[in-house]
Design a binder for these strands. Sequence first.
DNA 1: TCAACCTCCGTATCGTTGTTACATCGGACT
DNA 2: AGTCCGATGTAACAACGATACGGAGGTTGA
Lengths: 228, 228
Amino acid sequence: MTEVEGTDTRTRLLEAAADLIAAAPGEDFSLRAVCDAAGVKMPTLYHFFGNKQGLIEAVVERGFDMYLSAKSSTESSGDPIQDLRLGWDAHVAFGLENPGFYTLMYGKVRPGYSPEAQSKPSEILRGLTLKAEQDGRLVVGYEQAAAHVLATNIGVTLRLIIQGKNDPELSAGVREGVLAAITGTGQSEPGDGRLGHSVIERAAANPGILGETETQLLIQWIGRLGEV
Amino acid sequence: MTEVEGTDTRTRLLEAAADLIAAAPGEDFSLRAVCDAAGVKMPTLYHFFGNKQGLIEAVVERGFDMYLSAKSSTESSGDPIQDLRLGWDAHVAFGLENPGFYTLMYGKVRPGYSPEAQSKPSEILRGLTLKAEQDGRLVVGYEQAAAHVLATNIGVTLRLIIQGKNDPELSAGVREGVLAAITGTGQSEPGDGRLGHSVIERAAANPGILGETETQLLIQWIGRLGEV
DNA sequence: TCAACCTCCGTATCGTTGTTACATCGGACT
DNA sequence: AGTCCGATGTAACAACGATACGGAGGTTGA
């Protein structure tokens, strides 16, 4: 810009690239456009990022940071399954709000290609399923459960991005189906250590029936029943 | 070329493009390479396909034909749910065997972009879920069920392509979870009168755990959950 | 102090890409 | 025979990613 530019060049390039990507999702943006927006020539960009892929990865990493900071603020209900639910919704919401970033992060499908930054959210997800497993809530291994959740969560989000409009019913439907599948809801025998899980799942899946506080209380009470 | 060329030029271009795409998934192939492989100059390609996108769409359409012919040969069990299962597996198998085609068909994620040829398989899918609905097998609308199946099926397939190796456990797990979700099997049905009985009995048997009023409230809430 | 050095950045250029204007050839129809 | 149209080639364009090269400015070390 003609104004003073307090931010350093690298950051300016990164933000310019992020803007262009957000404006036109996909990776079909021009490095020259990025340089123009940042008020710099191309070798400068190459100096900082090596090549286009380097710039994209830096942008993606930045996107994941945004995603994680947006996610970490809304994820700690105590109940791991409920955390999975919140994480699912946060994932979908981020994808719909930032389709440009999201398609770069999860929409690029090449065999063997998995951005470095993807590992962090996956780690968090596995942490949640591990906790759920330790609580005896899963009927499949925690890694299997995490893969199950991840694949479907991405699938739904990409689908929603493609069709442009959000579809809470689809997202919630798939989400509950997935959670039911990994928790074995409906197949649990009384007294097998998973007391009341179907009730909890059902209540949490439909917060409108009981209301948020009642649902939370219900989960808490059933937990106390199970402890004894 | 020097050899005889029985196939017509358009087909040769199509096959050359398909080969290049299959060799290096994605759409980052050169039109000149296609022309060289087909023994033709570029204006010929433009004469038949207009532009690169046109060529890609033609290749995609060809891919869908392959997919459908591979699918239709293994899909008629009479039972719509079982057909969905077979269709799911055929979908995954095709994606893993033809990642190049598949990523072009379903891996391209741009808001509002949906290849023409995609509508055919989606139509078939909706036909199956409609039949299932008419048979009274679904607990959600057939369109919702179809969207549910499609999003997860694509999600799993893309995931398997990315991680290179097949994972029948993941595919089957998600598949059964999805089918359970749309058919209602494995989940406690609304109004089946059994939701939370073990919880209620335990609470009623031990009024000291929650206290009288809480227990009463719990029973009431679970009743409301079951009514819906 | 001064020369070596490193970071940052511009000039100019290269090879490749998608795309198009224009010309050519050959068969089909009138 | 003449005209038209589909199919193909020649040549060129602009935009792209990438790179070789050089220079300005500050920092460092003897």
